[in-house]
Simulated assay, not measured.
Amino acid sequence: MAAYKATGPAVPEWLNKGDNAWQMISATFVGLQSVPGLVILYGSIVKKKWAVNSAFMALYAFAAVVLCWVSWAYKMSFGDELLPFWGRAGPALGQKFLLKEAALPNSTHYYQNGTLEAPMMAPLYPMATMVWFQCVFAAITLILLAGSVLGRMSFKAWMLFVPLWLTFSYTIGAFSLWGGGFLFHWGVMDYSGGYVIHLLRGLLVSPLLTG
């Protein structure tokens, strides 16, 4: 571990170069699945007349999620608690916020008798890395959802749908399970995003397909 500890007067003691590098590599791989991965896939699996529209639905979803994520959605998913299932909205911007050590507020988990089971998680990389890592998962969730509405939804409707679904659906699931919400404290384990990404997307897709 010592070999990966950053050194220097301008480098914080908590920063681990290996942890930070792997987190960013992982985020990059997920991002590449979305752009160009799913952009190309969606443009190629539909009828020719829908190809450009379908590709741009995926591209727009990624770009829109990035803007919404840093503007308000990150803190609704991983910020201070507003409700047991929702965080308090706010921008995830600014040097002071992004360069401090990453943490998941309200993530401390206690046994029923009040003794500590799991302390607040404090990864050894900055908040900027955490924000981007979680952002690409939020983005690919919307893009996966887009696959069920290709040829069924106009681009204008999709432009409105993306920020609304991110705000009123994804952030609730993310905070409840990952950000220290009530499901986290109930001990629910979300392996590979099974609830937040796959189940949450499927709950909305089913009525769209049967409607």
Rank of each mutant, 00 (worst) to 15 (best):
F137H: 12
A146Q: 15
N106T: 07
V162K: 02
V131E: 11
S154R: 13
F155R: 15
K75E: 13
G147W: 04
A139C: 11
L164W: 06
N106S: 10
A118V: 13
F168R: 13
L142N: 10
V162G: 10
F155M: 15
T108I: 12
K96G: 00
G90W: 11
T167W: 02
L142Q: 14
P91F: 05
S107A: 14
M120P: 07
T129S: 15
V149C: 05
A118R: 15
L93H: 05
S148H: 05
P105I: 00
L104C: 11
A89V: 01
H109V: 08
L142S: 14
F137R: 00
A89G: 04
C135F: 11
Q112W: 08
Q95S: 08
W165S: 09
D80K: 05
G114E: 02
T115E: 10
Y110E: 04
W158D: 08
N106W: 14
T115G: 09
F97A: 03
E117A: 10
L166N: 07
P84T: 10
L98T: 06
A146R: 14
G151H: 01
K100G: 06
P105R: 02
L164D: 08
W132D: 00
R152Q: 00
P163Y: 03
A89C: 05
K96Y: 01
N113Y: 13
M153T: 12
T108S: 15
L164F: 08
Q112L: 12
M153H: 04
M76H: 09
K96N: 03
S77W: 08
T141A: 14
P91K: 01
T167D: 05
W158S: 06
S154V: 01
W158Q: 07
M76W: 11
W132F: 12
A157F: 04
L83S: 11
M159T: 15
K100D: 02
L93N: 08
L124P: 01
G114P: 00
A118P: 04
A146M: 10
